[in-house]
Design a protein around this nucleic acid. Structure first.
Lengths: 126, 126
DNA sequence: CCTTGACTTAGAGCAAACTCTAGGTTTTAT
DNA sequence: ATAAAACCTAGAGTTTGCTCTAAGTCAAGG
C-alpha cells in the first residue's frame, strides 16, 4: 500500500503542497504512483525525506539537493561526489554552530545587561 | 566625520544596497546624515548593526527587528519587553543548536557510511 | 449509486529579503 | 576646474521557497 500525500504530509510535517513542489523540483524521483496516478509514499521514502530535510534545514538550496538526489539515482560512480558533498555540508553545519554559539554569548551578555538595567531602574524609582 | 555608506558596507560585510534597505525598513533610525544628506555611520552604529545581524542571522524577521529597534528608541519603559525578546531569541538559538547537533550526527553517520561504501566498492573492483 | 472528501495538474500568487536601475547631486582627486 | 567616483531617492525587478486556486478525477463510506 503506502501513504497518500496527505498521510505523508502528516508524517513529515511538510504540507502536501510542499511535497508536490519538491517532486516537481526533482527532489523525489523515487516516489511511486498507483495505477490511477495517486502518489504512494513507501516507508523508505521517509528516510529520503528526512535526509532532504536535514540538507534543507542546514541551508542547502533546492537546486543543490536536486543535484545530490540525481547523483544518488545514478549509482556507485557518484559515491565520491556524494561523500564530498556530505563533508562540505558537515563543515557548513560546524561553522553555523560556531556562529550560533557566538550569538548565544552575545544574547547572554545582553540578557545580563538588561537584568541589571531593570534592577537599577527599579532602585531609582523606589 | 564617520563612515560613508560604502565604508560602512566594507566594515559590516553588508552591501550598501542592504544598508539603505535596512534604513528604509526602520532598522537604522540612529544613523545620522551630513548637512548635504549623505549618511554618516558613527562607531556606535556598528554595535547596533552587529546586534541587528545577530538577530537576523538567528532567524528574526526584519519586521520583528524593527519592532525591537523601536522599543530601544522609546526608552526605559520598554526594558522588560526587550529582555523578554532577548530571552525568547536565546531559546530559539538553543533549539536551533540542538537541531543542528542532530543534523551533524546524521551527516557523520552518512559520511562513515559512504567511506565504507567507497572502500567496499574499491575492494570489489580490485 | 451517490456524495463527500482527497487526490491530480498547471499555473498563478505571495512574502521576504534583498538587489538593482535611472536620473540626479555631491564629494574627491587630479 | 573638472572628471570620475560615490552618494542620494523612488521604485522596479529578482530569487527562493513555498502556497494556493481552478478545474477536473478518483476513492471510500453510507
Amino acid at each position: 500500500m503506502g501513504y497518500s500525500i496527505g498521510k505523508a504530509a502528516d508524517k513529515t510535517g511538510l504540507s502536501a503542497f510542499t511535497l508536490r513542489y519538491y517532486e516537481k523540483e526533482g527532489l523525489l524521483p523515487f516516489v511511486e504512483r498507483t495505477p490511477s496516478g495517486t502518489r504512494c509514499f513507501k516507508d523508505s521514502d521517509f528516510e529520503w525525506l528526512a535526509m532532504i530535510q536535514c540538507l534543507k534545514n542546514t541551508g542547502m538550496s533546492i537546486k543543490d539537493i536536486r543535484e545530490f538526489v540525481g547523483w544518488c539515482m545514478e549509482g556507485d560512480e557518484t559515491l565520491e561526489k556524494r561523500l564530498a558533498m556530505f563533508c562540505a555540508q558537515r563543515k557548513e553545519v560546524e561553522a553555523k554552530m560556531a556562529e550560533f554559539q557566538s550569538y548565544l554569548d552575545k544574547l547572554d551578555w545582553k540578557i545580563a545587561y538588561y537584568e541589571n538595567a531593570i534592577h537599577d531602574v527599579r532602585k531609582i524609582k523606589a
